[in-house]
Structure formats: structure tokens, C-alpha cells
Amino acid sequence: MSDKKKVVVIACERSVNLDKELEGSHGANLKGVDNAYVVQVPCSGIIQPRMIESAFDDGADGVIAMGCQIGDCHFREGNKFCRERILGLRPPVIKKTVPKNRLEGLWMSEPQVETFKDRVRDFQDRVASELEKEGASAS
């Protein structure tokens, strides 16, 4: 069992092309990155704060919301709205109980598969250090 932090990626199916990158019994494990689970949605605009909250409630250490590059959205404004929600600029806002430091928005396009994986690995490291910090301040 890898000690990598558990990260859930809620990804727009039109952003990074993950057709050949998922495996595991539920077909959600990101190949080559331990403990990263991907759930694909039609557009990052569908990501409701509730989805992010429930991922943390269910035991995720970190959550990534991923859409296409800002400026380009198949449905015009989905990634823009999603980003604004993550930044707390657009209702509905994400609950205060959600650890914002362990939530990230990624905005990438179809061909950027390898960059995406690197970003997930970086994020796992950041989540680890955030958790350490949180642990230190709690004790």
C-alpha cells in the first residue's frame, strides 16, 4: 500500500484525455499515480460544492476539480464558473469546513496527459505537507 495521499479528481471528460489512463476494479485509478481516483463528468460546470464536500467527508485527503483551459469550454462557461466557485466568488459557495488548501482547480486540455499526471503528483505532495501543518497546529 502506497503512502501517497488519497486524491479524488473530478474531471471534465472533454479536458485531459484519460480514455487509456484509467484502470482498477472500478476503472477509476489513474495509471502510474498511486491513490489517485478519477470520476469523469460532462463538464466541470456540473461540479456542485456538495460533490467536493462529500468527497472530503468520504475520506479524500485532497480534491482536484479539473476542466478545460480557462477561455475554452465546450459549454462556454463551465470551467469559468467552477473556478469562481473554488475561489469563493460565485454562489453556491463551498462550505467553510472544506479544507481549501487541499482543494485545487486544474485547467488543462486534451493532449496534456503527462503534465496532468505530474500535477496530480505535485498536488499529493502538497496535500501531505498541508496535512502535516494541520496536524501540527491542532496539537
Binding site: 470520476v39 460546470g45 456542485q48 456538495r50 459549454f75 466557485r85 453556491p92
Partner: peptide, 23 residues
């Protein structure tokens, strides 16, 4: 597109083919 689903704080609108609770 589901942007309305992302905008609703009351769980009141859904895409029948992409239910948010399933995700």
C-alpha cells in the same frame, strides 16, 4: 451541459443521464 446542476444549492435540478448523486 450540467451547469445548472453546479449552480443549484438545493439538489433540485439534475441531468437524467448524469445524476450527481451517482458521481
Amino acid at each position: 451541459c450540467g451547469l445548472c446542476v453546479g449552480a443549484c444549492n438545493f439538489d433540485a435540478i439534475e441531468l437524467p443521464a448524469h445524476i450527481s448523486h451517482d458521481y
